[in-house]
Simulated scan of single mutants.
Amino acid sequence: MVAYTTAQADVETGLEERTVVLVEKKSSTGWIWKVSGTLLIILLCLGGILLFSWYWNGRPELMQSGKTEALMSHTADKKGPHHELRRNSTNAAIHLEGFCEDCGKDKLEWRVDQGQAFAQGGLKLLDNQIVIPQSGLYFVYSQASFRVTCGDGDEQGAGKRLTPLSHRIWRYSDSVGSKASLMSAVRSACQQGAQEGSYRVGQGWYNAIYLGAVFQLNAGDKLWTETNQQTELEIDDGKTFFGVFAL
């Protein structure tokens, strides 16, 4: 701001003759506005920097979560629906080993604490039966191994010439109210004809019956096995087993 004042005329020039001098007078408030404006700009810049820093540091988990979900979605799209089914499964599985003290007298017993046996994901062994924890698709399997001592065709050993071997898996469901056969198979041991020469009289004839398939089972279903010729069963580790796993 500029102010103008009139200087006193020299006394010697008299009242008639005066000289007017213009003097620029600086305002005392001008520098205050400049400093204030500069400080305001600096504060706004600092505020913007702090706000950006807070926003960036406060969202790493969300950003990481978004990246993870995108990666999982991309992987699932590449591997297809079967991969998604496996990823969402409960990993329920059970594998049992066969046991009997005297297979000629005792019933075949399934054990979860023997050899490679295990149980997880809710599947359990109860009263020699596998109990299904929840409805869904399951792969059910079992194997029975036999060692039959074949006869020589005389009257005493004639029964061992054509010995039938059978193995079956049963299912009981509350929705049905009765038991039903899931799978079964029958084999003949000590065969004659084409099989002749594959064994010697008095020696063991080996065979195994394996069963396995996918079933839609309900929660609470019970599965068990039935095997004939138990005196001929082989119960060494890995020869006779029973198991289920969820798909």
Rank of each mutant, 00 (worst) to 15 (best):
M1L: 11
M1K: 12
V2P: 03
V2H: 09
Y4C: 07
Y4E: 11
T5G: 14
T6P: 04
A9F: 09
A9T: 10
A9G: 13
E12S: 14
T13V: 10
E16Q: 12
V21L: 13
V23H: 14
S28L: 11
G30H: 15
W31E: 12
W33V: 10
W33S: 06
W33G: 03
T38A: 14
T38F: 12
T38Q: 09
L44M: 06
L46N: 06
G47A: 07
G48V: 00
S53N: 10
R59Q: 06
S65D: 10
G66L: 05
G66V: 02
K67S: 12
T68K: 14
L71G: 14
L71W: 09
S73N: 13
S73M: 13
H74P: 04
H74D: 15
T75Q: 15
D77P: 07
D77M: 10
P81V: 05
R86M: 14
R86I: 15
R87T: 06
S89Q: 07
A93G: 07
H95V: 01
F99V: 01
E101G: 04
E101R: 10
D102M: 02
D102N: 12
D102P: 04
C103T: 02
D106N: 12
W110A: 01
V112P: 01
D113W: 00
A117I: 01
F118P: 15
A119S: 13
G122L: 00
D127A: 04
V131P: 01
I132P: 01
P133W: 00
S135Q: 08
G136C: 05
V140I: 13
A144Q: 01
R147C: 12
R147G: 14
V148M: 03
V148C: 04
T149M: 11
G151C: 08
G151P: 02
D154N: 15
Q156H: 13
G157V: 14
G159Y: 12
T163Q: 12
S166N: 08
R168Y: 11
Y172E: 02
S173F: 02
V176M: 09
A180H: 05
S181H: 00
S188A: 11
C190R: 08
C190D: 00
Q191Y: 04
G193L: 11
G193W: 09
G193Q: 08
E196V: 01
S198R: 11
W205C: 08
W205A: 10
Y206C: 06
V214T: 14
N218Q: 15
N218E: 15
A219K: 13
K222A: 05
K222T: 04
W224V: 03
W224R: 01
T225P: 05
T227F: 00
T231A: 15
E232F: 07
L233P: 00
G238M: 07
G238T: 03
T240A: 07
F245G: 05
A246V: 08
